[in-house]
């Protein structure tokens, strides 16, 4: 019976494997939780910095409804973000008009029509495009799009909603393409095979079977593009014209929420009302991108359930 008691002893003893397993569990847990901690920390920091403004000078109706963003006015500074929201929204909206057809078209081509090597090269190219820094896009907006818009549309200034919208659209398209292509690839081949066996043409297979099956993923891709548009700073700072304005046409210059923070934060005294008001814009942006990303996430989750 000695073997049995030996066995019992070994069952009761923590060996090396047990400790390694425990250690790895802890490390993985820490790295997982740290991501959440950082996000919560950033949100807490932004909120704290903007909190003073929220308490004393803040009027929610002025903040959301006034088109006047005049924090440096000596007599009566006003902090209305309506024009900035309009700027961001118009640029993002135009950007989506540009990016959605381009990226969906590209994703359908890469996912459904291109084959073998061509597909691989295109995917690498798309990923390269996605990696272009936003300041480069802003530079293209300033030096190429600006004179081009002046020449083509015969307008005095080429830094406006049109310029920024196109630049932002081209910028968001590669990421949207990449995600949309993933969504198409997630549609099992047996669906395509079954539809083709019924005599459906390639296009019929795509629009009757593949697109409906991938629609949540595609919507997720679009929403992530919208999130990108709201959050983008450098390119819109350079291409919008950076003038506070509720745009009446695509040729009007505007200013974006993000660009306002980037341009003004360095010139304000820490703790001043202006400084705190900029952080309040930060809170606002954080909430909007959070809502967009959450929606996108919930939609993408929706596909997996099916």
């Amino acid at each position: 019976m000695t073997t049995q008691s030996n066995q019992l002893a070994s069952f009761d003893q923590r060996d090396k494997e047990w400790y390694i397993d425990k250690a790895i569990q802890i490390i993985v847990f820490m790295s997982g939780i740290s991501a959440i901690l950082f996000v919560v920390g950033i949100f807490a920091f932004v909120t704290m910095e903007g909190f003073g403004f929220l308490l004393k000078d803040f009027s929610i109706s002025e903040f959301l409804l006034s088109p006047w963003w005049e924090p440096t006015d000596e007599d009566e500074p006003t902090y209305g973000i309506l024009a900035l929201v309009a700027g961001t929204a118009s640029v993002t909206g135009l950007a989506m008009l540009v990016a959605v057809p381009f990226s969906l078209g590209a994703a359908i081509y890469i996912g459904e029509f291109a084959s073998g090597k061509k597909r691989e090269y295109l995917k690498i190219l798309i990923e390269l495009l996605a990696a272009i820094p936003s300041v480069v896009w802003g530079f293209i907006g300033l030096t190429i799009m600006n004179p081009l818009i002046i020449a083509v549309f015969d307008v005095p200034v080429g830094l406006n909603v049109l310029n920024a919208g196109i630049i932002l659209g081209l910028m968001a398209a590669p990421i949207m393409t990449s995600i949309a292509e993933d969504a198409l690839k997630a549609v099992p081949d047996r669906y395509r095979e079954a539809a083709e066996a019924l005599g459906a043409t390639r296009w019929q297979v795509i629009y009757k079977t593949v697109l409906p099956a991938a629609k949540n993923g595609l919507l997720g891709a679009v929403l992530l593009g919208v999130g990108r548009g709201f959050g983008e700073t450098m390119a819109v700072l350079m291409a919008t014209g950076h003038a506070i304005n509720i745009p009446g046409s695509v040729f009007d210059p505007v200013r974006a929420l993000t660009a306002t923070i980037a341009a003004e934060l360095g010139e304000t005294a820490v703790g001043s009302t202006h400084y705190e008001a900029l952080f309040t814009i930060g809170i606002f942006l954080f909430l909007i991108t959070f809502i967009i990303n959450l929606t996108a996430d919930l939609i993408v989750r929706g596909i997996r359930k099916q």
Binding site: R190, Y191, A194, A195, A197, L198, A200, P212, A213
Partner: peptide, 29 residues
Amino acid sequence: LRRRIGVVFPLPVGLPMTVYENVALSPRL
């Protein structure tokens, strides 16, 4: 050619649409 040959695969493939549309797909095509 494929429209004139009906195929049933070994593993069932219900297309991601309603029962009705699954059967109505081919006539619609």
